[in-house]
Write a protein that binds this DNA or RNA. Structure first.
Length: 929
DNA sequence: ACCCATTCCTA
DNA sequence: GTAGGAATGGGTA
């Protein structure tokens, strides 16, 4: 999991702060194997490969790290050490050593030789010694160096190396990016470096198959060592340790010396060259160029060739025209010379922040106005392109600039940092640029860290994490109808605003990401789900959905006529004219003038005219029924049949929603402008709107939804045998529940009993009480309670799960999904009982709703990967509606493709119960259901 | 022009 | 009884 650290900016920052200034060059020992392995498992590095399929992610990762180290320790003498192939002396000591390790995957193995070649061509000493491990070589070198008074820094992610730390030797940890000296070891482990081997021996190591004391983890090991100082004394006092753990210790006594020996890093490996003889040689630029080309390491190649050019460009500009020194070091780029300088820096950058400035917040309507960049905190540049107010200075040609930037923006190995990068990706797509290397979106970082925080916009994040007030868009553009678009804004003001955006984004990343890194589950949601999903959503948004606007216009027409008739009827009954859409006027008519009894009040105390109320009143009075019909029809007209045709893009003839990835606290997506996740389906009339969601010529609409996904998740999380069995046997779960609650055979369950069972099943997912159930089913409270009691009697695992979840939430203040997405519940300890109860219900619901969201997101990633691999434009994913994915598929391949997609969705994750996706195919969305 | 309350559409 | 978005009227600035 670590190694994110090596791309984490804190690395640079902290390392510089603690750099030592001894007169001798420090020795920098790189644990290449540990890095290689870690880099191999970093998601965004895994995506990297050459055109012909040779994976290069691990190579890139290790080289990035070496590059960072060289930058941070300019005087350092970097030596890279790798494990050699084959057995080591530890296998002779103990044949079972590392016997459980799975064989190295080919994708990783194939990267080792190229990496060795590159490191050698770089001129760095490379040590691969057979019969020992990299640790032993590093130990030996650090020991030799210490004797010569040379400072050593060991770069590793391996905690075992803490035993090597002393006054001359420090570790730099890949995970936390902090240098660890003797005090650091004490702080981190609670014991001194010279106690680390004893500590490791006591704990053993599952992964390396080193035996230790059963059930002895870090806490116990430290406790014993604090008490007895070292392993020998622990062994001598083994008789005094009480309980099961004492017994375990006594059972382990015989093998502890072996464990100690295995955990001990050798300091006396015979090396061909001593530490003094290990010096870098000049890089073989020709060889390096060739290797970088072969493995398509574009950024490193650019850096290799640009290094000298950059320097000359730098002096050139200084000589030609002194750069205006702006205090904040924000720069407007108006000349090719300035632009080229930045271009070179961007090409060589490990990562940079950027932002697009446009004419609209709607990505379909947006025209690019300028771009801003920041590679280093505090320094940023704005490249204005199409500011066109009167008196605007001449700017660089937009298409020329984009042509220069295209290879950088499209490079997968140049990491981009941004705020809401989906927007930038969509805008750039209009100019034929596919944004790649999207690894860090600060908006999503903030969301993954705390999904309950409602605002993840840059201004709010800057205040929260940087205690900094940014220039707001309204400050420079004004507001309301008179608001200027960005191209009308004075370049000086615009430049400061835009450059600040890039600068602040970079700073935010540096402030938020290290926090995210500390939380394993949330980091994994960020790296494995949310960031990879971003480009998938962007693709769906850009593709859009096809609408039959004529059909909707016809429907609007018909509804309009009917609404007029209803209005006349209503006015006649009321005896006067009034606005049927006004709840206030309706309240007066119904409850004051017609003296109809008040059944329910709104939260503010006004008599409610909500549907359920009118439904009941309609039994005794004529007007409520008219109002109900009017309401439902006017809703359909204003929200759907009138609105959707207006949302058709003139550019594409299709409707393009926005999926928001950072709104729903549970992890769901939301959809706006228009919301495509609440298109009617329940009523006959509303459902017709789905007829207007059509497929293009020769294509079909395919809708695939997960059946009962949240209940299946409840079965999985609670592990209730009855519920798991019902799903595993493929039962109708509501029918099965009804049979249990009402004590009848499956076949004898009535429609009414099934309906009640269904209400209970859903209610449980929402954290419902007996009171809620009684209202839902229209039965007495004690009757509802009896149903629920019976349910929990039959499904005791569910009851336990609910209780444990509540308890967990209260204890920790958060709950988590199956995949580690975390939802904080600040109200769980509220003194206000209503808020507290509300938080408890949310605590029950969130793991189920959130896990469902995780699953469909994973399914979307799998589906997209399949579509990309197939590279067939006849298949396209167009919509997501929480538990349903909608596709456009060419009629020639629709049957077999649908089956494939169903399989992919079924296999998206493995639960204790089967996951079932069901598909429908049709000319439109209605038919596809 | 903006905010709030109410209502109703979805999973 | 969970999670959302959007339209409307009606008040306020």
């Amino acid at each position: 999991m670590p190694l994110y650290g090596m791309l984490s900016p804190l690395f640079v920052y902290r390392a510089k702060k603690t750099m030592n200034n001894s007169s001798l060059s420090p020795l920098i020992l790189v644990d290449g194997s540990s890095y290689l392995f870690r880099a191999f498992h970093v998601p965004y590095l895994q995506a990297l490969s050459t055109a012909d399929g040779q994976p290069t992610g691990a190579i890139t990762g290790v080289l990035n790290m070496i590059r960072s180290l060289k930058k941070d320790y300019p005087n350092g003498n970097v030596v890279v050490v790798f494990d050699a192939k084959g057995k080591t002396f530890r296998n002779d000591l103990y044949p079972e050593y590392k016997a459980n390790r799975p064989p190295m995957p080919d994708e990783l193995r194939s990267q080792i030789a190229p990496l060795h070649q590159i490191i050698e061509a770089m001129g760095l000493p490379l040590l691969v010694i057979e019969g020992v491990e990299a640790d032993d070589v590093i130990g030996t070198l650090s020991d030799q160096a210490a004797k010569l008074g040379i400072e050593t820094v060991i770069s590793t992610g391996d905690k075992d190396m803490a035993q090597l730390v002393n006054e001359h030797v420090r570790l730099i940890n890949t995970m936390t990016n902090v240098e660890m000296d003797v005090a650091g070891v004490v702080e981190k482990f609670g014991i001194r470096p010279d106690q680390i081997i004893d500590y490791l021996a006591l704990m053993g190591d599952k992964v390396d198959n080193i035996p230790g004391v059963e059930k002895c983890g870090p806490k116990t090991a430290v406790k014993w060592l604090l008490e007895h100082e070292n392993l020998d004394n622990v062994i001598k006092n083994a008789d005094k340790v009480k309980g099961k753990i004492g017994e375990n210790l006594r059972n382990a006594l015989e093998q502890l010396p072996l464990s100690y020996e295995l955990a001990t890093i050798k300091l006396d490996v015979e090396l061909a060259k001593s530490v003094e003889e290990l010096a870098p040689v000049a890089p073989d630029v020709e060889k390096l160029t060739e290797l970088y080309k072969t493995y398509e390491l574009r950024r490193l190649l650019a850096e290799l060739t640009a290094g000298s050019e950059l320097q000359s460009a730098d002096t050139e500009t200084k000589a030609a025209a002194p750069v205006e020194v702006i205090e904040s070091q924000y720069q407007n780029i108006l000349t090719k010379a300035d632009f080229n300088e930045w271009l070179g820096a961007l090409k060589a950058a490990q990562y940079f922040a950027f932002d697009t400035e446009t004419t609209s917040i709607n990505y379909m309507a947006a025209e690019l106005v300028g771009l801003s960049f920041s590679i280093e905190v505090g320094k940023a540049a704005y490249v204005p392109l199409t500011h066109n107010y009167v008196g605007a200075p001449e700017q660089l040609d937009r298409d020329w600039v984009l042509e220069q930037l295209k290879p950088i923006l499209e490079a997968k190995d140049i990491i981009k940092v941004g705020q809401n990068l989906k927007y930038d990706a969509n805008v750039l797509a209009h100019y034929g640029i596919t944004l790649n290397g999207i690894a860090f979106d600060t908006m999503i970082e903030s969301y993954c860290l705390n999904s309950v925080a409602t605002r993840h916009n840059m201004d709010a994040l800057a205040e929260k994490y940087l205690d900094y007030k940014t220039v707001h868009f309204e400050d420079i553009a004004g507001k309301g109808a008179k608001q200027l678009t960005f191209n009308q804004i004075d370049i000086e003001k615009a430049g400061h605003y835009a450059a600040e955006d890039a600068d602040i984004t970079l700073r935010l990343h540096q402030a938020i990401f290290p926090q995210l890194e500390q939380l394993k589950g949330q980091l994994s949601v960020f790296h494995d789900i949310e960031m990879p999903l971003l480009p998938v959503l962007a693709k769906m948004e850009q593709h859009g959905v096809l609408i039959d606007a004529d059909l909707l216009a016809e429907q609007s027409q018909a509804i309009g006529t009917r609404l007029q008739e209803l209005e006349v009827e209503a006015h006649n009954i009321a005896g006067k004219s009034f606005n049927l859409s006004s709840t206030k006027q309706l309240q007066e008519i119904l409850f004051d003038e017609l003296k109809i009894p008040v059944i329910k009040k709104t939260p503010k105390g006004a008599p409610s005219t909500a549907e359920e109320v009118l439904q009941e009143l309609a039994l005794d009075y004529p007007l409520p029924k008219i109002i109900l019909q009017h309401r439902s029809l006017s809703k359909l007209k204003s929200t759907y049949t009138d609105k959707l045709p207006l949302m058709v893009s003139s550019k594409t003839g299709r409707v393009h929603t926005s999926y928001n990835q950072t709104v729903a606290a549970t992890g769901r997506l939301s959809s706006t402008d228009p919301n495509l996740q609440n298109i009617p389906i329940r009523s006959e009339e509303g459902r017709k709107i789905r007829n207007a969601f059509i497929a293009p010529e020769n294509h079909k609409i395919v809708a695939i939804d997960y059946s009962q996904i949240e209940l299946r998740i409840m079965a999985h999380l609670s592990d209730d045998p009855g519920l798991v069995k019902a799903f595993s046997e493929g039962r109708d779960v509501h029918q099965a529940t009804a049979a249990e609650i009402f004590g009848v055979e499956l076949e004898q369950v009535t429609a009414d009993q099934r309906r009640s069972a269904k209400a209970i099943n859903f209610g449980l997912i929402y954290g419902m009480s007996a009171f809620g159930l009684s209202k839902q089913l229209g039965i007495a409270r004690n009757q509802a309670q009896a149903y629920m009691d019976k349910y929990f009697e039959r499904y005791p695992g569910v009851l336990t799960y609910m209780e444990e979840t509540r308890q967990d939430a209260t204890e920790h203040g958060f709950v988590e999904t199956l995949f580690g997405r975390r939802l904080y519940l600040p109200d769980i300890k509220s003194k206000n009982a209503m808020r507290r109860k509300g938080a408890e219900r949310a605590a029950i619901n969130a793991p189920m709703q959130g896990t469902a969201a995780d699953i469909i997101k994973k399914a979307m990633l799998a589906v997209d990967q399949w579509i990309v691999e197939n590279n067939d434009p006849r298949v396209c994913m167009t919509m997501q509606v929480h538990d349903e994915l909608i596709f456009e598929i060419h009629q020639d391949i629709v049957e077999q493709t649908t089956q494939q997609l169903v399989n992919i969705m079924n296999d998206a994750v493995e639960l204790k119960v089967p996951l079932i996706a069901e598909a429908g195919i049709g000319e439109n969305w209605e038919q596809a259901h």
